[in-house]
Computed example of a mutant assay.
Amino acid sequence: MRRKWGNNPELKDKLELAGWRYAQLIEIVDLRTNLQQCIDDGHDMRADIEITSFIEQDKKAYGHFVKTAEHNGKPCPVWDQAEAITFVSEVAGVDKKLAEDWLNHDWP
């Protein structure tokens, strides 16, 4: 199956950035952890720096997407597929079907 982003690296980058921003927003990942140490160690952290630059903006606009559920006595982030689709669609500037296809492809 041919993907719309297959021959469009700019679109792929936008979708990937949006997906990671959602994961950061809901705190499935914390790209800020050890970021400075990685930079100091000489690692290329440009992608993580770009994603973390949106944290406050994303929290203001999409903070209502952040949910937790208790697991073994600890709060854990909740991935909501419909909200992930909305988020990726809106921040990447693509339709929801394309956002859904990306999430199903890249975040199985």
Rank of each mutant, 00 (worst) to 15 (best):
I51W: 05
I85D: 06
A18Y: 00
K59F: 03
A23C: 06
V94S: 04
L17N: 00
M1G: 12
I49W: 01
R3P: 06
D95V: 01
K14Y: 00
L17Q: 03
M45A: 08
E70G: 11
K12V: 03
R32Q: 14
K97S: 15
Q36T: 10
S89C: 08
E27H: 14
K14M: 03
D58Y: 03
Q57N: 14
N7R: 14
I39K: 14
P75G: 01
A23F: 05
A61Q: 14
W107N: 10
E27Q: 13
L11D: 00
E70P: 01
E100L: 14
E90I: 08
D58F: 04
W102V: 01
L25S: 04
G19P: 09
V88F: 08
Q36M: 12
Q24T: 07
V91L: 10
D13H: 10
H43E: 15
F65A: 03
L15N: 02
Y62Q: 12
W107S: 12
G63I: 07
A82T: 08
N104I: 11
E100C: 11
T52V: 13
Y22D: 00
R21E: 02
E83I: 09
F65Y: 11
Y22L: 00
L98M: 13
K59V: 08
T86H: 06
V88T: 02
F54G: 02
V29Q: 11
P108R: 07
K59Y: 03
Q36H: 05
L103P: 01
G63V: 06
N72K: 15
V66R: 06
R2G: 09
N34V: 07
E83M: 14
P108V: 09
Q36Y: 11
D41Q: 13
N104H: 11
T68A: 07
D58Q: 06
K97H: 11
R32H: 12
M45P: 01
L17Y: 04
W20L: 11
W20H: 15
V29L: 15
L31N: 14
A69D: 08
M45H: 05
L11N: 02
N7K: 13
Q24H: 10
G19E: 02
A84E: 00
I28S: 13
H64T: 14
T68Q: 08
H71P: 02
Q81I: 07
D80M: 11
K59M: 10
G19M: 11
D30P: 09
M45N: 08
F87Q: 00
E83L: 14
W20K: 08
E90W: 10
N8L: 03
R3Q: 10
G63H: 07
D30K: 14
A18F: 02
W107D: 12
L98K: 01
A47E: 14
W79S: 02
D40R: 12
H71W: 09
L25A: 02
R2W: 11
V91W: 06
N8W: 01
P108W: 09
N7F: 13
E10V: 15
P75F: 09
R32D: 13
